[in-house]
Computed example of a mutant assay.
Amino acid sequence: MMMNLFSSFDPSTNFNSSMNWSSTFIGLLFIPTLFWKIPSRTIMLWNKINITLHKEFKILISNSTSQGNTLMLIGLLLLILFNNFLGLFPYIFTSTSHMVLTLTLALPFWLSFMIFGWINNTTHMLAHLVPTGTPNLLMPFMVCIETISNIIRPGTLAIRLSANMIAGHLLLTLLGNTGSSLSMAMLSLLIIAQILLLVLESAVAIIQSYVFTVLTTLYSSEVN
């Protein structure tokens, strides 16, 4: 039995199962279909999505020498999107609501960008610490502010994703727990509200995966 509402987001107590994180790897089951000789409709839709995302990220990166980076970013988006949607199903642990996964995704990307930028484009990285047109008196303060804002970037990425996933699931859980004490008329309204919230959560799952990947792309474009 869960001691509190937030225990549903704790993988060590969720249904007393050690298989909670296995939902993250269910997407690997779809990989063999990519090698079929005749593509199915699902694979054709998958390729169409990949091409659209490639064009989108190519504009954001704006670097002709880094053509393969879009594939890595597309994989990141689809991984987050897949796990966000899996969390909407009953009895499936939402791995993207846990800071272990979101910080694991955000921190290596940010760290690799910083190491690459400071080693190869040191002057460019130093120029980013002082915005154009800053008065000489404010330059030391702007360096401190820009440094702090740069350091907290992986934390903000991880917290944004996990907090949005937790908020919607908590609201669905709170409304669902009140169903047993409501009348038939109020129960009908509750079901309608739950369906609308489920649609909203589906939109949030898409938007948050896109926002996470786009922000990662923008961070990478700053070091070039």
Rank of each mutant, 00 (worst) to 15 (best):
F85T: 00
A163T: 06
L175R: 08
I115M: 07
T132N: 14
F93N: 03
E146F: 09
P90K: 08
P108E: 08
F141Q: 03
N84P: 00
N83F: 08
A158S: 15
G133N: 12
L172E: 05
L170M: 15
H169D: 02
M125L: 08
I92A: 00
L86D: 00
G155P: 01
T102M: 07
T102K: 07
F116Q: 12
L105C: 09
I159R: 02
H124M: 13
N120M: 10
T134Q: 06
H128W: 13
I119S: 14
P154W: 05
H169A: 07
W118M: 05
A167R: 08
I166G: 01
N120H: 13
A167Q: 07
I151A: 04
T132L: 14
L138V: 12
T147Q: 03
S162R: 01
G87D: 00
S95G: 11
L137P: 01
F89S: 05
L138W: 13
W118H: 03
N121W: 10
S112Q: 11
M139T: 15
M142I: 08
N150R: 14
N150W: 13
Y91T: 10
T173K: 15
S97L: 02
S95Y: 05
V130T: 15
I145M: 05
C144D: 06
L105F: 11
P108W: 10
L174F: 10
P154M: 09
F113I: 10
H98S: 10
Y91K: 13
N136F: 09
S162M: 07
G87Q: 01
T102Q: 03
I152A: 09
L138N: 13
L129I: 06
I145A: 06
T94S: 00
T123D: 15
T147I: 11
L170C: 06
V143H: 05
I166D: 02
F113M: 11
T173G: 08
F109M: 04
L103C: 10
G87A: 04
L103V: 02
G117N: 06
T102V: 07
N164H: 04
S112F: 13
L138S: 15
L86W: 05
L174D: 05
N164D: 02
A167N: 06
E146I: 04
T147L: 06
A106G: 01
L174Q: 14
R153C: 04
M114Y: 12
G155S: 12
G176L: 07
L105H: 11
L101T: 05
H128C: 10
M142T: 07
L126V: 06
A167D: 10
L172I: 14
N121A: 14
M114W: 13
H124N: 12
A158V: 00
H169G: 04
N84S: 04
F141Y: 11
L126W: 12
G87M: 03
T104D: 10
T156R: 13
M99I: 11
L111F: 14
I159M: 09
T156G: 06
L137E: 15
L161S: 03
L161E: 03
F82K: 05
I92S: 00
T134E: 11
F109I: 02
M114S: 09
L103F: 15
A158L: 08
N121M: 06
G117V: 02
L138Q: 13
P131L: 03
N136V: 15
S97C: 08
S97K: 01
M99Q: 09
F93P: 04
V100E: 07
F82R: 02
